[in-house]
Write a protein that binds this DNA or RNA. Structure first.
Length: 456
RNA sequence: GGCGACGUAGCCAAGUGGUCUAAGGCAGAGGUUUGCAAAACCUCCAUUCGGCGGUUCGAAUCCGCCCGUCGCCUCCA
């Protein structure tokens, strides 16, 4: 397949270097509930993973949790909890949110605080190589020496000179140059702290990802992913320290970045506070609708979070769901050949994961199934294919669960009353029952074979 | 200020040199079906791709300028 890489700024043919496709995706910092922007990124890489498996590859995907940083420390202090407790709370919340979005778990979900030995080995190695140095003011921090890498800036397209001049970067004491970044941060009294050759401290943000990628996936990984906002400085720094440490280039063969979700004209982010949590979104919309909303736009494009537009996806999801489960008289002796649809689906996905087109193919197949229903064609094969393709996008095509109101038995009972009323030509009574059920989120369809119902 | 992305029908959104008089979804109009609906099906719904120039036999697609929106440069998926 073709994949766009931020490093080369073009689409290239992707083949894994080894037997399995290795993917490292930057995960969340466990200081807050996940928002829909995190869901966007998670869904994109979930679909990439699912598609690669659909194509027959074995995939090993690692996604970390940054479970120690300033915000977690602050949050723990505010709530009177330990940093571990705060982190654990949001890790569990993340898993629940992702499960409900039908995002499959990664192969591994390592945490920064559980990888301290690997992180320390890497920092020590970088110091030995002259790539890093303990803070010049003896604070106990360790910094990476950016000017030691003449290629620094190649991922984000930044000029090293400009960065070294400290354009809009505050110079910290103890740094040789403004662009140098922390590999190890000395801890202040009362803060969580791990022992190191330089004194008590904690890992800098970037080093954890390098260490985990190396530990779990090796010196060169196939795909490194994350949101576009991570390109600089996070991924730029990961790249330089990883290639410096291992001497192996490239650190990642493809850099895949998803576009950012916006709300009210700005990027959805913690610092701006303009966010909608995954949980809030799931309270109003089904996972299929949320995923379809994300996937009807290309993953590299920015997407504006808009409630009304997600609502329209709910109706669109229903269209697919019904086509996947309609029944046919199957008396024509013909059936629908799904092969051309599968081909078009694959063709779309092969082109840098063009999910909008892939989804359009599924809609075309749904249309063909509905036509086939009217013509009395055999549908099972086409419907099975449709479910297979939908599953590659992580769509369940399942009915939303009963939202408290009426149980299935209640619905069946109301339906029986309505059937009796219709038989008696008492359409007023029949329509009243229908209206009542619609209020409860149950839609009826009267057909030649009787009335079928579904939840919306 | 530096670097980068984007602007396609009422809305969302693919398409990036000819098969585009532009996919798909939602909304809308007429019809079939139905006790009436709903769903489904049939027909219709951008001669046009932010604006102005240019390159080309040919541009939504390439180039230039302008207008508008957004991202990164500081923690952020």
């Amino acid at each position: 397949m073709k994949l766009y890489s931020t490093l080369t700024r073009d689409k290239r043919d992707f083949e894994p270097a080894g037997d399995a496709v290795t993917i490292y995706v930057c995960g969340i910092t466990t200081s807050n509930s996940s928002h829909v922007g995190h869901a966007l990124s998670a869904v994109v890489f979930d679909v990439l993973h699912r598609y690669l498996e659909f194509r027959g590859y074995t995939v090993r995907r690692v996604q970390n949790f940054t479970d120690i940083d300033d915000k977690i420390i602050a949050s723990a202090r505010d709530q009177g909890l330990s940093t571990e407790e705060v982190a654990e709370k949001y890790v569990q919340e993340f898993f629940r949110d992702m499960d409900d979005l039908n995002v499959r778990r990664a192969t591994e979900h390592p945490r920064a605080t559980e990888e301290i030995p690997a992180i320390l080995r890497m920092i020590e190695g970088l110091i030995e190589q002259g790539r890093a140095y303990p803070a010049t003011d003896n604070s106990g921090s360790v910094y990476f020496r950016v000017k030691s890498d003449p290629e620094y800036g190649k991922l984000s397209g930044r000029s090293v000179d400009e960065l070294l001049e400290g354009v809009r970067i505050d110079v910290e004491p103890g740094k040789e140059a403004p662009a140098d970044f922390a590999l190890w941060k000395s801890s202040k009294p009362g803060e969580p702290s791990w022992d190191s050759p330089w004194g008590g401290g904690r890992p800098g943000w970037h080093i954890e990802c390098s260490a985990m990628a190396l530990e779990y996936l090796g010196e060169t990984i196939d795909i490194h992913g994350g949101g576009l906002d991570l390109v600089f400085p996070h991924h730029e720094n990961e790249l330089t320290q990883s290639e410096s440490f291992t001497g192996q280039k490239p650190f990642a063969r493809f850099w895949v970045h998803n576009g950012l979700l916006r709300l009210d004209g700005a990027k959805m982010s913690k610092s701006l506070g303009n966010l909608v949590t995954v949980r809030e979104a799931l309270e109003s919309y089904s996972a299929d609708a949320i995923r379809m909303y994300i996937l009807t736009s290309h993953y590299r494009s920015p997407l504006i979070y808009d409630q009304d537009n997600i609502g329209t996806q709910e109706r669109a999801a229903r269209r697919l769901r019904q086509a996947a489960s309609v029944t046919s008289r199957a008396d024509s002796g013909d059936s629908i050949d799904p092969a051309p649809f599968r081909e078009r689906f694959v063709e779309a996905m092969e082109d840098d994961l063009n999910t909008p087109q892939a989804l359009a193919v599924i809609f075309d197949l749904a249309h063909e199934i509905n036509r086939g229903r009217d013509a009395g064609h055999e549908l099972a094969g086409a419907q099975a294919e449709m479910r297979t393709l939908a599953d590659v996008l992580g769509l369940t095509l399942a009915e939303p669960a009963s939202k408290g109101g009426l149980s299935d038995e209640d619905v069946e009972a109301r339906l029986a009353s309505r059937a009796q009323a219709r038989a008696n030509q008492d359409f007023a009574a029949a329509d009243a029952i229908r209206d009542e059920l619609i209020e409860a989120g149950v839609v009826l369809e009267d057909g030649p074979g009787g009335t079928i119902w579904s939840r919306v």
